[in-house]
């Protein structure tokens, strides 16, 4: 027993040593800047003059700005379009790829992963061509079907959905591969036992696959939702946040203040509020899915 605890102590020490670089980097680049941001958010902050303490004034201004709420709402709507679509597509594709073997399976895996390595900037430019009102592919298809041209990026009804599509395309590859890794981890014997008990494909999916992918789903959901809410480059390049702020995601909203405001207080306060909102959303997701390690 004594020997065992000695090993544990040594293991702990090694673990701490291993963690040290990460903790150091996190402290330098996350924790200190975060506390510093909280500190300056209470000031009328200027790089060149004495800072003036103004208490919660910056927060009051952000919280009484209807555009801040609209931006947060837009972020949520964007996530609500992107994440379910990505999940359903990725789940179906992951199942499909699992049944494919050999070279063809590898080819499909590579093909769907390619969009993930394309930058948002390049995707934006590609989709700007696709959504061009007169010469774009989207309107070519629509008009070939006998429908009227659509102002994909200028129509209030379509703009957010239009920028969601490249987001789905960009994120879909990684989501699929993570789900595929999860699927491959489910022991085949579970399915074999289920078949003996008379389960059909539907039963297998509902009672085996989905419950056993719960932690994978949880990871993808938290990363996906927080990532989608923080979307920046697609609306920045494709719509500039318009029309009528319909595509003004929270990060674009903050960035606009960063570039246009003479003082930085509003920007810092709104960024911190976004941080709190994202933390709450992540906590709610964890709570709803009740994450815990699977019993072996």
């Amino acid at each position: 027993m004594k020997k065992l605890s000695a090993i544990n102590r040594s293991d702990k020490k090694t673990a701490f040593l291993m963690l040290l670089p990460l903790i150091g980097l996190l402290t330098a680049f996350v924790i200190i800047p975060l506390f510093y941001a909280v500190f300056v958010s209470f000031y009328k902050w200027n790089f060149y003059q004495e800072n003036i303490f103004i208490g919660f004034e910056n927060y009051r201004r952000v919280l009484s700005d209807p555009l801040f709420y609209k931006a947060m709402w837009t972020g949520l709507k964007f996530a609500a379009i992107v994440i379910p679509a990505q999940f359903i597509l990725a789940f179906l594709f992951a199942n499909l790829i699992r049944t494919l073997g050999g070279k063809f399976g590898g080819f499909v895996k590579t093909s769907i992963y390619i969009p993930h390595v394309i930058s948002g900037v390049v995707a934006s430019i590609i989709f700007l061509f696709i959504y061009d009102f007169d010469g774009g592919l989207a309107n070519f298809i629509i008009t070939s079907l006998g429908l009227e041209q659509v102002a994909w990026l200028a129509d209030v009804k379509f703009a957010l959905t239009s920028i969601s599509i490249p987001a789905i395309w960009l994120g879909f590859g990684l989501t699929t591969l993570v789900m595929l890794a999860g699927l491959n981890d489910i022991p085949k014997t579970y399915y074999e036992a289920a078949v003996i008990d008379g389960a059909n494909a539907w039963h297998k999916m509902i009672y085996i696959t989905i419950p056993l992918l719960k932690n994978i789903f949880l990871y993808l959901l938290v990363v996906g939702v927080t990532g989608a809410i923080q979307q920046f480059d697609l609306p920045y390049l494709m719509t500039g946040g318009g029309p009528l702020n319909e595509t003004m995601t929270p990060n674009l909203f903050i960035f606009t203040h960063f570039t246009k405001d003479p003082y930085m207080g509003y920007t810092v306060a709104s960024a911190l509020l976004l941080f709190v909102i994202l933390a709450v959303i992540s906590a709610v997701i964890f709570k709803l899915f009740n994450s815990k390690k699977m019993d072996s």
């Binding site: 020490k13 701490f16 040593l17 040290l20 670089p21 903790i23 150091g24 980097l25 402290t27 330098a28 680049f29 200190i32 800047p33 510093y36 300056v40 902050w45 200027n46 790089f47 800072n51």
Partner: peptide
């Protein structure tokens, strides 16, 4: 030795992180 190493490392990183973050440059 371990504690000293940890403290030194943290200090170096903190100093690197602090550099230039002050408003009075």
């Amino acid at each position: 030795l371990f504690v000293v190493l940890v403290s030194l490392f943290t200090l170096v990183i903190l100093m690197a992180g602090c550099k230039g973050t002050g408003p009075e440059g």
